[in-house]
């Protein structure tokens, strides 16, 4: 064995350090803290009316109150359940259809026009129809989320399957692999990064659409909390809703990224974080 090749198992590409230096950490926090500080001052000095824009301290105490009373968690869990149901429905349909379209030219032709026309329809345009068909209850909301999730998952998966390296397919052919092995060991792993990107975009859209659906008509959920607070002019509760949406959304995104890193350990493009 040649000496040269006895190198340590080090990543080939230079790593971007993900653990930030203390000064960098300061920089990430300084902007939001300054903004919140200025906001607090503005309200305290009477520059803005608290009925329009309550102070950060008011909002955070409302946040804590709602958290402690369990009301926030109640609404949040309702919204999350809807997201999970809609996301699963949308993603599963998209994965089945996407696999078919990605693998078969005939399936791609057969669905081409249909998907081309349906895709540009914005999600909100479906709302009246969904309410007419499914009523104002759970199923219309879940359906809306499913539609939102469906598109990014479908498009990314199809792209991922189609861009499988022809040279690798040739290797599998030379090694006499049957079709099932080819799909399981070559095509799907190769499409995995694209699929995960699709799922991440999809869950983002799912979270957005659950709020939209709840704002339009619901009796529970974070969207409802905001809409109801508006009727009662509880601006602090509205802000609490917004903050909850933001935090939950970024937590979902964060966990999917972690999942990506775990599943795509082999992918040099992911190393060192993004």
């Amino acid at each position: 064995m040649a000496q040269e090749d006895r190198v340590e198992l080090a990543p080939v590409r230079p790593r971007i350090r993900w653990r930030p230096a203390p000064s960098a950490l300061l920089l990430t926090w300084v902007t939001p803290l300054l903004l919140v500080g200025a906001w607090e001052m503005a309200v305290a000095r009477g520059l803005v009316r608290p009925t329009i824009l309550p102070s950060p301290t008011t909002i955070s105490s409302t946040f804590v109150d709602l958290l402690v009373s369990g009301e926030l968690f109640h609404h949040l869990s309702i919204s999350l359940l809807r997201v999970v149901a809609g996301f699963l429905a949308g993603a599963c349909t998209a994965i089945l259809l996407g696999t078919l379209i990605g693998l078969s030219q005939a399936a791609a032709r057969a669905t081409g026009i249909l998907l081309g026309v349906l895709r540009p329809i914005p999600m909100v345009a479906w709302v009246p129809l969904l309410i007419l068909w499914l009523g104002i209850g759970e199923s219309s909301k879940v359906a809306l989320i499913a539609i939102g999730t469906f598109w990014p998952v479908l498009l990314n998966l199809v792209h991922g399957i189609r861009s499988t390296d022809r040279k690798l397919l040739e290797v599998a052919q030379v090694l006499e692999k049957d079709r099932l092995t080819l799909l399981r060991r070559v095509v799907f792993p190769s499409a995995m990064p694209s699929l995960l990107t699709g799922l991440r975009l999809g869950v983002g859209i799912a979270w957005t659409s659950v709020i939209a659906a709840e704002l339009l008509g619901a009796d529970r959920g974070i969207g409802f909390l905001i809409a109801y607070a508006r009727e009662l002019l509880q601006v602090d509760v509205m802000f609490t809703g917004l903050v909850t949406i933001g935090i939950t959304g970024s937590l979902i995104d964060f966990s999917i990224r972690k999942l990506e890193e775990r599943l795509l350990r082999w992918n040099p493009d992911l190393e060192g974080g993004r």
Partner: peptide, 10 residues
């Protein structure tokens, strides 16, 4: 082959 053509996920 000239390119190693290894499967990157294996």
């Amino acid at each position: 082959f000239q390119e190693h053509r290894l499967f990157p996920w294996m």
